[in-house]
Design a protein around this nucleic acid. Structure first.
Lengths: 342, 342
DNA sequence: TTGTATGCGTTATCAG
DNA sequence: CTGATAACGCATACAA
């Protein structure tokens, strides 16, 4: 390991004080242009790079934001991360990522690790069944801001960034009804987190608005995996009477469910129309192409990062805002087109 | 911001020296069990957390590894990241992620940022057309180890973690030939990076081994997006004679190409058989299900992280090994089954 | 506009 | 087994 160049080295060589060098490097107004120029040039020449540890040790901020997500390996989440990374990077922040693997315990330990890394702020999408949020208390106590996105919660005054899941689900369901569906089914995950609770709400609401009855049999709960799609297809195919419209909380699951039903001889959308959720690339591969709710993941990531960083730089107080809601529109494709448009 | 608890606070309260506390906290053998116990208990009680900046300032290592990938928002890459995160986390390392967006320039600036963050090591999957690797020189000069994965290169003695793309492509192509295909096409990206070069090689090799002719018309170069799949379908459908087998370097692109051809009335696999690459979830959604090469992304991430960290902890010298090759097997599904197995 | 002096929290060296 | 002390590199209060 070669020796690093420090401000002392620069100072020594220019026969000025380290303090002046330090100030110049920060573009401090009280340093003359000439001196600054000299310093910058020498810094460049000698390959100086600031030591962030020393700086952070003094300043107590890290220019790093922590991100906790339930899983990294879904298209939606990787899109969000891409958005976060992009914005954070542009604003001079780095991101440290960890995944909870949908386990509260890992979420807590991730939170702890990130806390110990002294992240300046936290971006969190909660695990499936996190109820106790006490592992985040430490952040609040130290006034480290937390923003929840997608899988959110009411926690202190922390800001939430989300879409209106109820409205989206309502729109999806209403669309199915408009297409002539009367016996609807909603395939989703256990309604513990907002996203699933709200979608179920929206589903019910649309039924009610259309004067359609609702019973619990119309909701199939599973984990939204591809396998869940197969299982759901089995259940749906045995329902009497056969449903004529299915709204699924996840595109991948929806698609598999759809093609499994097709294999059983059920026509899509004539017998059963389908609407998914997310606008995953899989939608355009499915046959018929899957109608879905466009979930703006990349944008969500950008907004989350931007909001957090604005708060950190003092520009905006995120405690004033409790939530930012992003648009999530219905994208109609063949899987739900029972009425051919004239 | 409340005051942090430091080893001084602990020391003071126990009326011992900070040095002892520091040692105890590191489980130094020269400290009595009794003393350690006292210290640990008090630390717990007072909510002590080590200040990594101070520690790093002294130690000059960060327990952080940097990751540079071309894109974050692909299923394959998010799987790799998940694997890296998982292993690194278990071994006490954090990861800082940045994406090059397939641009050399961003790759270089990411490298720089990570360098300034003093990451202990680097995991890199190269951008599409990175040729000049000089932005990594700084790492080598400081003996910060770099491991390349997936999109690799020969660079100093840096270790590569990859699959045998040539072999995989060969196997894929051979499989098509075994299924009776004689007029093969390979849809891929510009053969600049190893992955595409090697796959093309494997493709050619398989043709040669089977005594089939090869001409450049059999290779379609595009960016492997879904749109590229559509474009390729146009081209393929106009080829005379029509090809009877297509090997695509990416599942998503393959699937879209396949269904576009289907819409034109071409039967899969009877008229044209398809093999993709990656084993993306989309394979099981495609109709017919897509035959593909299983690319073990999660495992690759784990191996990469483990190798890097072993090196860092001095257990293994990665310069001794130049490459680790992971298994990547063919998964046969309906899209290529022209000969019904007896 | 610049310099002096000090502390941020750890760890390691040396001494006991 | 334990203590005193000196760095690590930077930023700032205070002085000049």
């Amino acid at each position: 390991m070669e020796k690093e160049v420090t401000i002392y080295d620069l100072a020594h060589k220019l026969e000025i004080s380290p303090a002046t060098v330090s100030r110049a490097l920060q573009d401090h107004p009280a340093i003359s242009k000439k001196t600054k120029k000299k310093i910058f040039e020498l810094a460049e020449e000698m390959g100086y790079r600031t030591n962030n540890f020393a700086r952070n040790l003094r300043n107590k901020n890290t220019n790093t934001i922590g991100v906790i997500v339930p899983r990294l390996d879904s298209y939606f989440m990787s899109t969000v991360i891409a958005g976060i990374e992009n914005t954070a990077g542009n604003l001079g922040y780095q991101i440290i990522i960890s995944q909870s693997s949908e386990q509260v315990k890992k979420e807590a330990s991730s939170a702890n690790t990130l806390f110990n890394s002294r992240v300046d702020g936290l971006l969190v999408s909660l695990a499936y069944d996190t109820e106790d949020l006490s592992h985040f208390d430490i952040f609040l106590k130290k006034k480290v801001p937390i923003i929840f996105f997608d899988r959110v919660t009411d926690y202190d005054g922390c800001m939430n960034i989300l879409i209106d899941n109820r409205k989206a689900a309502n729109e999806a369901t209403r669309h199915l009804i408009q297409q002539g569906c009367r016996r609807l089914v909603h395939l989703t995950a256990i309604p513990k987190r907002n996203v699933y609770i709200d979608r179920l709400e929206g589903f019910k609401q649309a039924l009610e608005e259309a004067g359609l009855p609702y019973s619990e049999d119309q909701v199939i709960i599973d984990n939204l995996s591809q396998e869940a799609g197969v299982r759901a297809a089995e259940i749906i195919s045995k329902m009497k009477p056969l449903p004529d419209g299915v709204f699924v909380s996840n595109d991948n699951c929806a698609t598999v469910c759809m093609i499994t039903l097709k294999k059983m001889g059920i026509r899509i959308p004539e017998d059963i129309a389908f609407v998914g959720f997310n606008n995953d690339p899989v939608c355009k591969v499915a046959e018929p192409n899957l109608t879905t709710i466009n979930y703006p993941g990349y944008e969500m990531g950008q907004v989350a990062a931007r909001s957090l960083i604005s708060h950190l730089s003092g520009a905006v107080n995120i405690h004033a805002t409790t939530a930012i809601t992003l648009r999530a529109d219905l994208i109609v494709r063949a899987s739900s087109m029972r009425i051919k448009s004239s």
